[in-house]
């Protein structure tokens, strides 16, 4: 599919990655418009159900962006997120979805470039993978 444009839902931590996306904007770095950013107070508050509902609702990929290890504003939220993402990758695999559709990336608040690069990489990879198998019958999902 050549005209396929993937849709990414990004859960970005208020204290780092969301600021990084801002930096990417103010420094006029280019990144694809395929991403919809949801600001969360900590990557640790992202619940399995957010990921599943995003995918069931038609997203092709989900990005969870949080502070680098040791930098969490709430001490250990990002390690919690890391464990959760590991488990969710197993779940996606068992459910029959490519687990690369879920990505966890540590982005600190200055790294606007890294934010832009992460989105670019994800869009490229998702274009190779094609649309999410859950995308058909949109609206039937949760």
């Amino acid at each position: 599919m050549t005209d396929f444009e993937p849709l990414i839902i990004a859960f970005a931590c208020n204290w780092c990655s969301y600021a990084a996306s801002d930096v990417a904007g103010t420094s006029r770095s280019y990144y694809p418009a395929n991403v919809r950013i949801v600001r969360v107070m900590c990557s640790g508050m992202v619940d399995p159900t957010y990921i599943l509902r995003a995918l069931a609702g038609g997203a092709d990929g989900v990005l969870i962006a949080g502070c680098r290890p040791g930098d969490c504003h709430y001490i250990s939220g990002n390690t919690k997120a890391e464990k959760m993402v590991e488990r969710m990758k197993i779940l996606l695999h068992r459910l029959g979805l490519e687990n690369e559709r879920l990505r966890l990336q540590w982005i600190s608040s200055g790294e606007g470039g890294l934010f832009a690069r992460t989105i670019e990489e994800m869009v490229d990879r998702l274009k190779e993978l094609g649309p999410s198998p859950l995308k058909e019958g949109k609206g039937k999902g949760a």
Partner: peptide, 9 residues
Amino acid sequence: GTFDTVARI
């Protein structure tokens, strides 16, 4: 509602 969403998938 995670398990409900899983069932829907």
